[in-house]
C-alpha cells in the first residue's frame, strides 16, 4: 500500500502546515509520496522532502501545474494513480478543486474533509455542517480523499526523502490563469494560527472591525469572522470561519460579537480554549465557551487590547 499526497503550493511556497498535518492523518496507511506540482517548485519540493514520514517527493516541474489549475493537475495525478491505494490532500480550496476531478476520472468516489482515518478503507467525516459525523467504508479500488487538517497535529521535520522528477499529461487550452488577489498580511495564516480572534455581526461595521484586528495584532493572532459578519460586508470572505468558510482549531479562539450559529461552531469547536465576548448572555456561543464575558464589546475589546 502506498499513499500519494498532493501538496498545496502557493507561489512556489509549500503550504507546510497543511501538508504536515495531512501526513499525520495518513501515517498508518503505508509509504507516503508527496507530489509537488508546478514550475519553480524546487524549494517547495526540497522542503517537503524534509518532513518526517515522507518516503519520496515527486516533483512535476511544469508550467501547466502552476496556480493549482484543476484540469492539468488532475490529469497529472491520474497519470500517477496506478501505483497508489490512496490519493489524498489537505482539504484546502486548491485540493477540493482538484481531487473530485481526479476521483471521477478514476471512476471512484471522493471523500471530502476526512477527520479520522479508521483503517485503510474506513473514514470519518462531518456532514450537515458538522451536526453529524459519518463513518463510511469505501469499496473503491483507490481511495481519494481530502483531510480536514484542523483535526491533526503537524508532522515534524528531519526527514530526508528522495526527490524524483515526474512528468504527466496536461490539459490543452481548457482554462487559463489570469491573476491571484491574495491579501498581503503580516498576520499568521488563519488555519495554522495559534490564536484566532474573530468578529461577528455584533461588531456592527467594517470600520469597527478595526477593534478586532487591533486585539489580534496585539496577540499575534489571525483574524476570523462569522458568516454573518462576512455577509454584512464587515470582513472579507477569506476570513470566514465556519462550515462554509475555514475550519480552525487554534490553542485560543476568541469569539467577539458572535452569537454562535451552528454553522460557525462547526468551524471552531475543536479549538483548545474558547473565549466568548458578547453582550447577550443568552447567546449560544456561551454554551461552548470555556470563558464567557457578558459585556459590550466596544468597551471590553479595547480594554483587553490595552491590558494583554
Amino acid at each position: 500500500m502506498a499513499v500519494l499526497l498532493l501538496a498545496d503550493v502557493n507561489g512556489g511556497q509549500l503550504a507546510t502546515d497543511s501538508v504536515a498535518k495531512t501526513l499525520t492523518a495518513v501515517a498508518g496507511l503505508g509509504e507516503i509520496h508527496v507530489l509537488v506540482a508546478g514550475q519553480g517548485g524546487d524549494a517547495a519540493a526540497a522542503e517537503a522532502a524534509g518532513l518526517a514520514g515522507v518516503s519520496k517527493v515527486l516533483f512535476a516541474d511544469g508550467h501547466d501545474y502552476c496556480h493549482g489549475m484543476a484540469e492539468a493537475t488532475a490529469a497529472l495525478v491520474v497519470g500517477l494513480a496506478s501505483s497508489y491505494t490512496h490519493i489524498c490532500a489537505p482539504a484546502t480550496a486548491a485540493a477540493k478543486n482538484v481531487l473530485p476531478r481526479v476521483a471521477a476520472l478514476l471512476d471512484v468516489m471522493v471523500l471530502s474533509d476526512v477527520t479520522a482515518v479508521i483503517d485503510s478503507e474506513t473514514f470519518e467525516r462531518p456532514i450537515y455542517a458538522g451536526n453529524a459525523i459519518q463513518t463510511v467504508k469505501s469499496g473503491d479500488k483507490v481511495k481519494v480523499f481530502t483531510v480536514r487538517t484542523a483535526a491533526f497535529a503537524a508532522a515534524g521535520t528531519g526527514g530526508a526523502a528522495a526527490l524524483e522528477k515526474v512528468t504527466g499529461a496536461t490539459a490543452e487550452g481548457l482554462s487559463s490563469w489570469v491573476e491571484d488577489k491574495v491579501a498581503a498580511s503580516d498576520r499568521p495564516e488563519l488555519t495554522s494560527a495559534k490564536i484566532v480572534v474573530s468578529g461577528g455581526r455584533g461588531v456592527g461595521s467594517e470600520a469597527d472591525f478595526a477593534l478586532i484586528e487591533a486585539l489580534a495584532d496585539k496577540l499575534g493572532a489571525a483574524v476570523g469572522a462569522s458568516r454573518a459578519a462576512v455577509d454584512s460586508g464587515f470582513a472579507p470572505n477569506d476570513w470566514q470561519v465556519g462550515q462554509t468558510g475555514k475550519v480552525v482549531a487554534p490553542a485560543l479562539y476568541v469569539a467577539i460579537g458572535i452569537s454562535g450559529a451552528i454553522q460557525h461552531l462547526a468551524g471552531m469547536k475543536d479549538s483548545k480554549v474558547i473565549v466568548a465576548i458578547n453582550k447577550d448572555e443568552e447567546a449560544p456561543i456561551f454554551q461552548i465557551a470555556d470563558y464567557g464575558l457578558v459585556a459590550d464589546l466596544f468597551q471590553a475589546v479595547p480594554e483587553m487590547t490595552q491590558k494583554v
Binding site: M109, G130, A132, I133, V136, I288, A289, G292, A300, E303
Partner: peptide
C-alpha cells in the same frame, strides 16, 4: 460506492465559566 457504517452526534463541548471583567478574563 460508499457504505455508511454509522452516523453519530458530534462530541459535545461543555459550557465553561462566566467571568466578570476583562481583568479576570
Amino acid at each position: 460506492r460508499l457504505t455508511v457504517v454509522k452516523t453519530s452526534e458530534p462530541a459535545g463541548r461543555k459550557a465553561g465559566v462566566k467571568v466578570a471583567s476583562v481583568d479576570e478574563l
